[in-house]
């Protein structure tokens, strides 16, 4: 009796151990892949390092550009794509995809004019559009002077700097100009790359930063982090509510809070020209794109867990890199969206 009962139990123990080790390795080896936007690459890599330490799951994110990210998720070669442009409802439903925002960032006009301190220049949307249209060509133009009473503005020519590569930064910037200037909308429009009426192109945020630093009397636009790290002169902006705001994490978050997310289907909303009293007008986000019916259920589950971790515990990491974590109300809305739209 004793021996016969002992044997199966020992076999059972071995089987259990083998099974456990198998399950153990599969859990440890879940490597999920993502591709797309270079805008979110720094924060995703920071989150994924912390997440891997905590759970053992690795997130392999390739910063190949939004267009590439969309192509890869449509081809099903990655577990999630990331794009600086939201997909239209039509394109989402065609491929059975869903999308949600991941993190927020600000885009700031940066200038280099001798005698004007960082933050001492105020611009508004129409003026910025006219500068980029080549209609306002000198720093002491009446339109700029009106916004900056008491500031001594030189009569020198304005050198316009834009991005030469296709980028989400340009997309959000041109979207903002299209919203505030009818002429910009009809003549140039919005896109990751557009036909710039004037100016010189720098490759990447670093290229634009370098040009603005080197060319006196120039103006450009860069992600907030680059303006801070390169100590560029940034301009304050007059927002949609008519208030002059500084580019700060608080004003970016105000834009995210006041943007009308509730009525945006599939979060298809650009936060530029947000209505809030303290909102920074050129605030941007990027979107994570995933299949609603997962192609690989185990990986998709980890991906959701990763973004949940990022929303709930990755806020400090985001702030350290000058990104803004999503507001709690938006995170709540995203988690509802997951529950209703995605099959797990």
């Amino acid at each position: 009796m004793l021996t016969s009962s002992k044997l199966p139990s020992r076999l059972g123990a071995i089987a259990f151990a083998v099974a456990a080790s198998l399950i153990g390795t599969t859990v440890q080896a879940t490597d999920i892949t993502g591709a797309g936007s270079s805008f979110v690459y720094p924060v995703i890599s920071k989150w994924s390092a912390a997440y891997a330490e905590k759970t053992g799951n690795h997130i392999n994110y390739q910063s190949i550009g939004s267009g590439g990210g969309i192509a890869q998720i449509q081809a099903g070669t990655v577990d999630f794509g990331a794009s600086d442009m939201p997909l239209k409802a039509k394109d989402l439903s065609k491929f059975g995809l869903g999308q949600f925002p991941d993190v927020i960032g600000g885009i700031v006009p940066a200038f280099n004019v001798a005698g004007i301190q960082p933050g001492a220049l105020v611009l508004d949307g129409p003026t910025l559009a006219d500068i980029y249209l080549g209609k306002i060509t000198s720093w002491n133009d009446p339109a700029i002077a009106k916004l900056n009473p008491g500031t001594h503005l030189p009569s020198s020519k304005i050198y316009v700097v834009h991005r030469s590569d296709g980028s989400g930064t340009s997309f959000n910037f041109t979207d903002y100009l299209s919203k505030v200037s009818a002429e910009w909308k009809s003549k140039v429009g919005e896109g990751t790359a557009v036909q710039w009426p004037t100016g010189i192109g720098g490759k990447g945020n670093e290229g634009v930063s370098a040009y603005v630093k080197q060319i006196p009397n120039s103006i450009g636009y860069v992600e907030y982090a680059y303006a801070v790290q390169n100590k560029l002169g940034y301009a304050k902006m007059k927002n949609a509510a008519g208030n002059v705001v500084e580019p700060t994490i608080a004003s970016f978050q105000a834009a995210a809070n006041t943007a009308d997310w509730k009525s945006a289907k599939d979060f298809n909303l650009l936060m530029t020209d947000a209505p809030g009293a303290d909102a920074w007008p050129i605030t941007a986000t990027s979107w994570v794109i995933m299949y609603k019916t997962p192609k690989n259920a185990a990986n998709t589950k980890v991906a959701f867990d990763f973004f949940k971790y990022a929303y709930e515990q990755g806020q400090d990491a985001a702030r350290a890199l000058y990104y803004v974590p999503l507001p709690t109300s938006l995170v709540q809305q995203i988690e509802n969206y997951w529950a209703t739209e995605y099959k797990k």
Binding site: S66, G67, S164, D165, G166, T192, A193, I200, K203
Partner: peptide, 21 residues
């Protein structure tokens, strides 16, 4: 004045270009 060249246009824009672009 600034200009562009064939190879630098490709290097600059290929990342985000889709379809006809």
């Amino acid at each position: 004045m600034p200009g562009t060249s064939i190879s630098s246009s490709i290097a600059n824009e290929f990342n985000e270009a889709v379809d006809l672009h």
